[in-house]
Design a binder for these strands. Structure first.
Length: 267
DNA sequence: GTTCTAGAAC
DNA sequence: GTTCTAGAAC
């Protein structure tokens, strides 16, 4: 099932809801979001632009084209590099951004429901993707998952190494007027070299000997974060309870006609 | 992208 | 002897 063009077959579906719920997370007229089949973090989704030849998708036979409105072809959606060569790249990336923000809200809801707190979601492209059809990763900032197995996996999602291209940074390429001549700063082989760099924790920056050591360390970092969030919630509740007690107290005093000394410093 | 596995590293 | 990596095959 895991061939290199599977994403394209999803993107071409006229009716995404025909996809299994174990694959499809959500969809709109222009995008569909699927669960990554081999998640590299607790939450890991792929946002794909739809290319079905329907009125709503990006590639349409009925679209009225003008000079400033060049048609997008399947080849333009091959990857980020090919998309960036198209005059409408910025438009598509802005659409990606809007869609990702909506998907992010849904994921945050899920985080709150399952964990009681939310943590960062990284949104970006791989500089050199392995699978056909452009796909935007939305991945939670824990990198704790069984499918994260080797150095290439890890470095490809490290938020600072440079292989993972944050969507906002890609959009920044369009700043400064030039909306057509934008391109990625490095060559594919330069990006691939990043994947071979030593393993460094993205949180504390310490270098790890090998993958088993790194994975153990990441798990510990995640456990620490969960513990911190748990403490924060207890503190928050305590503050909430205290506020409530203070309010009750004030109401009692007010009721008794005592309006003096209401002020109290927050902690 | 994953799986498999030879041989390097320990 | 076992663990781990990395390259070939798919």
């Amino acid at each position: 099932m895991s061939n290199l063009t599977i994403l394209r077959t999803y993107a071409q579906k006229a009716d995404p809801s025909s996809l299994s719920p174990s694959i499809l997370f959500t969809h709109s007229d222009q995008f569909l979001t699927i669960f990554d089949a081999y998640p590299k973090a607790i939450f890991h989704f792929l946002v794909l632009p739809r290319t079905a030849s329907t009125v709503s998708g990006y590639i349409t036979s009925t679209r009225s084209s003008s000079a400033s409105d060049a048609a997008l072809t399947m080849a333009d959606f091959s990857n980020l590099r090919s998309l960036l060569k198209h005059p409408r790249a910025k438009e598509v990336l802005d659409d990606f951004k809007r869609e990702a923000e909506e998907v992010k809200e849904k994921i945050v809801e899920e985080m709150m429901g399952r964990y009681g707190f939310k943590w960062d979601l990284w949104i970006g492209f791989h500089a050199v993707p392995s699978m056909e059809h452009i796909h935007l990763h939305i991945i939670s900032s824990d990198l704790c998952a069984p499918s994260l197995k080797n150095k290439k996996h890890y470095n490809s999602f490290h938020p600072k190494e440079g292989f993972f291209l944050h969507l906002d940074e890609v959009l920044d390429l369009f700043e400064g007027g030039s909306s057509t001549t934008t391109k990625l700063p490095l060559s594919p082989s330069q990006y691939e070299a990043i994947l071979k760099r030593p393993l460094a924790c993205f949180k504390c920056h310490s270098e790890m000997k090998n993958m088993p050591t790194l994975k153990k360390h990441l798990q510990e970092e995640w456990e620490k974060q969960k513990e911190r969030e748990k403490c924060l919630r207890v503190e928050k509740n305590a503050t909430g309870d205290k506020r409530k007690r203070d309010t009750d107290e004030l109401e009692m005093r007010d009721g008794a006609g005592d309006n003096s000394k209401h002020s109290r410093k927050e902690e």
